[in-house]
Design a protein around this nucleic acid. Structure first.
Lengths: 174, 174
DNA sequence: TAGTGCATGTAATGCGTTACATGATTTC
DNA sequence: GAAATCATGTAACGCATTACATGCACTA
């Protein structure tokens, strides 16, 4: 079993609680999607690979006539997950198209360039609103799941303030 | 010409100043790599596609016997770049493996989980040191190039403080 | 009865990296 | 004379998305 990028997302989610492939996709979309996306085309094949490697085990759990397979983590799977959790130097890397646009804003008129900065602010605002909409106000997540959720909110708030600050600075300078 | 993700990075860099393929790669590695990477396997084919589309034009500019081709943007290329700069809603998306690890930290002992948080802090610190090492203290970049550089520094500083704050909060809670 | 959500999956395509190959020039 | 940098490129591979296909169950 050669683990890939999607391995740990799927294995980790199954470790938190047993899940079907559909569950995995749904939870990815609702909790880690803004920093770690995955599609069905990755998830279902990965579940089979993980089961072959005996890192997870699947049980048929149909609902009525609708077939359904729920996976749970095995002791070996848990060991592998923990090794991954420990064994990596953290490298901060991101892919941010809006930052790329800002980088080229010197090819624009000053007011157009400032509009890009406001657009970035708006992107942060939208993500913030989306993240807040995910919180139903009553479900209690485990502490680190909640921590990462909070990171998303804090990051957006920081980003909004950063854009505001820079915009006024650049206006004063002009 | 169907633009892809790498199109705009290459076209934008050539728009800032004429460049060879090697230059494009070098500058990507030194200025936008932490939020927008690209490899030779993308850059050289993309330069040819851009030239075919007449968005850039290449001039042979050998240095001694070493062949070299320098590209500059055309008016059509500049128009296309500006359209891209204007015509997009900003969507904040990132890929952050360390955040994914943190998300699964509830499967660990509390002290191990806190170690992950310190590891993230360390990742920010390393990127910060790297970014600072890029600044030679005398070259003056255009304002928005500099703004994006500053974003990187500010983001790291914010990230370090965030990790510190959360770590003490979680220690107090325990 | 129509629409939404649950549930599983595959095929085609495109994106991006890694590793390789080649050779000149500059710097120590 | 060795090492680093300049300079151009390709082939193989792996990663990820998009679009498609199928069908059941619930609810307005």
């Amino acid at each position: 079993m050669k683990p890939t990028a999607v391995t740990w997302a799927v294995l980790g989610l199954v470790a938190l609680a047993p899940k079907s492939g559909y569950d995995v996709k749904r939870i990815i979309d609702r909790s880690v999607r803004h920093f770690w996306a995955a599609s069905y085309g990755q998830i279902y094949p990965e579940l089979r690979r993980l089961e072959e490697a005996a890192w997870i085990e699947g049980d048929d759990a149909p609902r009525g006539a609708r077939s359904r397979r729920v996976y749970r983590i095995t002791p070996e799977g848990r060991r592998a997950l923990q090794e991954w959790l420990h064994g990596h130097e953290t490298r901060v890397e991101l892919r941010d198209e809006s930052l790329l646009r800002l980088f080229f804003a010197d090819t624009l008129r000053h007011d157009e360039a400032l509009a890009l900065l406001r657009g970035r602010r708006e992107g942060y605002r939208r993500l913030h609103a989306y993240l807040r909409s995910l919180d139903d106000g009553q479900s209690t997540d485990p502490p680190f799941v909640d921590l990462v959720y909070q990171w998303g909110l804090d990051y957006c708030e920081w980003g909004i303030e950063w854009c505001d600050r820079q915009e006024s600075r650049l206006r004063r300078a002009a």
